[in-house]
Write a protein that binds this DNA or RNA. Sequence first.
DNA 1: TTTAGCACTCTCGCTGTTTGAGTGCTAAAG
DNA 2: CTTTAGCACTCAAACAGCGAGAGTGCTAAA
Lengths: 341, 341
Amino acid sequence: MGMLNERTERVLYAVVQSYISTNEPVGSRFITKAYSFNLSPATIRNIMADLEESGFLLQPHTSAGRVPTDRGYRFYVDHMARQKEAEDRFLKSFILRLEATREDLDGLLEAAARTLSEHSRYLGLAAPMKSGKTTLNRIELFIYRGNYIAVMLLTDEGLIKHKLIRMGQELTPRTLRRISEYLNQEFSGYTIDEIRFKLIREMSREKALCDILISKAVQICREALSFPAGDIYISGFSDFIGLPDFSDRIREIAGAIEDKHFMLKLLEQVGSESEDVPSVVIGSENPVKEMRDLSMVVSAFKQGGKTAGTVGVIGPTRMDYTKAIVMVQTAARFITEALAR
Amino acid sequence: MGMLNERTERVLYAVVQSYISTNEPVGSRFITKAYSFNLSPATIRNIMADLEESGFLLQPHTSAGRVPTDRGYRFYVDHMARQKEAEDRFLKSFILRLEATREDLDGLLEAAARTLSEHSRYLGLAAPMKSGKTTLNRIELFIYRGNYIAVMLLTDEGLIKHKLIRMGQELTPRTLRRISEYLNQEFSGYTIDEIRFKLIREMSREKALCDILISKAVQICREALSFPAGDIYISGFSDFIGLPDFSDRIREIAGAIEDKHFMLKLLEQVGSESEDVPSVVIGSENPVKEMRDLSMVVSAFKQGGKTAGTVGVIGPTRMDYTKAIVMVQTAARFITEALAR
DNA sequence: TTTAGCACTCTCGCTGTTTGAGTGCTAAAG
DNA sequence: CTTTAGCACTCAAACAGCGAGAGTGCTAAA
């Protein structure tokens, strides 16, 4: 599997790199020149034929150059050496950008997605952990315009949500305060999922108790927790869609990207396994079939030891993996660090 | 200007309608058949030649059918009769959809944009009034994780914003409450713009007073008001971009749409004049040059007599104006009504 | 094992041709 | 004076044929 002799490997690298930057099938002659092999085109052809046989390359048609297969990219990614200098240059502008936005998690993630996309020209992504896993720090309630209640949820992770709830009748400030105290006492420190669970139990008990106050509280909390899908920041749409790779299928891909729910699930599925180093999913490896000819580089960022969300990049299979990996990794690290402060 | 004889007008309508639905240049023969004129193609040709001379139609090339000019669309829009039945059908599903989301303004607008785009297959837009014009209902502060303050701003219009602010040192709950009281007393009932103005005055006075409390308060308020551009809900990206009209220029258009700041300014510029009936901007009439071959239908919705925001649709110049106008109008009315409750 | 040489294949761009839709004009008919 | 039939004309789009060029695989010599 990982067994290619030195020379063959070099040829594979050359093909991948060249194809990544030009998007043109690459021929034997070109390789000898551009990568200064001391070999004749014929020899390269033999090597390429071998590489094709073992599934790392393929020809779009008989008289064209070779193009990497997904497997070829995979080999490239798994064996390539890190480019240190790219990292440094990127790191600087990245930190510069993010440092400027000392906001809450949302602001940070939005900036991350944008920076990622601007530097890569691919699609930049950032999303906090599925909100169910976040733990509630506290919940605040106010009366608003008589018969509405404004709810503000704060989580330990810096995520903030608000919601307006319409009430049947008006509540006095005093009742509201009591409700608020009850909710905080009962639910602070639990994750949203746990709270949802507890709420269900509470609902049944509540009937028995017939305590109107608690009933109201539970009702408010239920409504407040009925979030829409969850946040995800996506940036770089236009550059991405302008890429020559998808001149057909634009519609389809645009549709997938616009569906935030879908993207979130995608991130979640791919990012789950990642540890310190970003995970790379190449074309056909993608579990989601709509994404079969796209690649993703995704990494998780943490807070207090726990995974707190994901950042990443989506691009064509011929994306610049070296750069993408470095960028995503830097981004994840930086966010982790920023959250730790 | 509005002087075309009955018959000529009918021909113009036929061309516009046909072109809107097929996106193909329309010929004389086709018109006679499809719209059952009791005239020969030759006659129609003469009429069309007249229409071309007066600038309502043009030929893409000599041997092709005619296509409406922007002026042609304009005439069509200004003179067309309302289609009552389309309205009713749309109204029902629209209300159904929006009724389900009894949320705050944000939720309402998002639903509106989506409904608009789904029913039109164009780009659906919805945005609240520029936040500077909204009036502050109240401001709430809490301590969060020691050295952060969570700020929640509520406006009279149902707009809610939150922000996390990092403080140099920790504040006691008591100080915070006093700050909060000060801010509410000082700023409630003013518009955000006014508050910004007052803040500047306060800043200078503050130096003289040397009151640390007020100083802190002002600082917090300043930070809290440093919003990003403002919200706008855009929906239907993928359908829109898949339209055959922009198969080239996709990149450019996608770029413009992605730039929310730009879109917001666009809406503001176009929507300002609209009263009860949506305003229609056709292609070259657009003040913004990037949008010169797109059309927009925009309407404002109100709250308490004042304009509270805008909804609209963007499509190709050959968009279905009848439908778009009815839809946008219904949407605006419905939102106005929903806000009144 | 490498390489030169050669025949072969296939895309791409160019050219010319045909087809068909649609026009404008003219002259006859209403 | 208006409408219409007829006809010549124009042009885009579709198609076929062709040559050039890039790239290959194979064979035989170095």
